[in-house]
């Protein structure tokens, strides 16, 4: 593969219109998120919402693709899961998942990918040093506010937990998510090194 800039990417300086390259990235990262759920997860707590590599894949999609394309990729994944493809964690699928305690997490994923991507674009544009640290901060902020926020809400609405109980039910995911975010940030830095024009298109 070459790292030459494609003609199409030069014509569209912003994300106004996605090119074939963008389509490829969106589709493949959607597949990445789907594939990440196929690695056995560990069900946690009484309700058995499993810990998987999924949050790693979601956040990484954001950190690598940036807000718009990451939202499209994870959104596509969610949509196909709703439509019946067995790609939600544990091989589940269908709109019915919205009635389960996992609902909050499922809805949060595209939004978290978008948020971490939006922050990552700023990090990549502005910094060269300590990128991993900044990307980790972007990932952590998106994870805590959106994934855990909506996750807790999901427990409250669908499992009829009060806030304290919902918070406690969500708590076991923090250590894993923190480790996964460290990993995501480190991987993202390497990917931006390997593919320097993947997020921020350079002008010569």
């Amino acid at each position: 593969m070459s790292s030459t800039e494609t003609a199409s990417s030069r014509q569209t300086p912003n994300r106004a219109r996605w090119t074939s390259t963008d389509i490829g990235l969106i589709a493949v990262f959607a597949a990445l998120v789907a594939a990440s759920t196929q690695i056995p997860g560990i069900p946690v707590g009484a309700l058995g919402v499993p810990i998987t590599l999924q949050t790693l894949a979601v956040i990484l999609t954001g950190l690598v693709l940036g807000g718009g394309r990451a939202f499209a990729a994870v959104g596509l994944y969610t949509l196909l899961g709703f439509a019946g493809l067995p790609i939600f964690s544990g091989g589940r699928s269908g709109l019915g998942i919205l009635a389960t305690p996992s609902a909050g997490y499922i809805i949060a994923f595209p939004l978290a990918a978008a948020a971490s991507g939006w922050l990552a674009a700023i990090v990549i544009r502005r910094t060269v040093k300590y990128r991993a640290l900044f990307l980790f901060a972007a990932a952590m902020a998106s994870t805590i506010v959106i994934i855990h926020g909506l996750g807790v809400l999901g427990f409250m609405v669908n499992a009829k937990f009060d806030f304290t109980k919902a918070f406690l039910a969500d708590l076991p995911y923090y250590p894993g998510d923190t480790i996964k975010n460290v990993l995501a940030a480190i991987i993202a830095v390497s990917l931006h090194k390997a593919f320097p024009d993947i997020l921020v298109r350079r002008v010569k």
């Binding site: 070459s2 030459t4 800039e5 494609t6 003609a7 199409s8 030069r10 014509q11 010569k204």
Partner: peptide
């Protein structure tokens, strides 16, 4: 790189490529 120029997969940094009068960047 030379071949990729011919169907617009790579854009020239300077100069132009045209195929039967169509420009490879403007008319990709």
């Amino acid at each position: 790189t030379l071949l990729r120029l011919l169907n617009g997969l790579v854009a020239p940094s300077e100069g132009t490529v045209s195929v039967n009068g169509a420009d490879s960047t403007r008319d990709v």
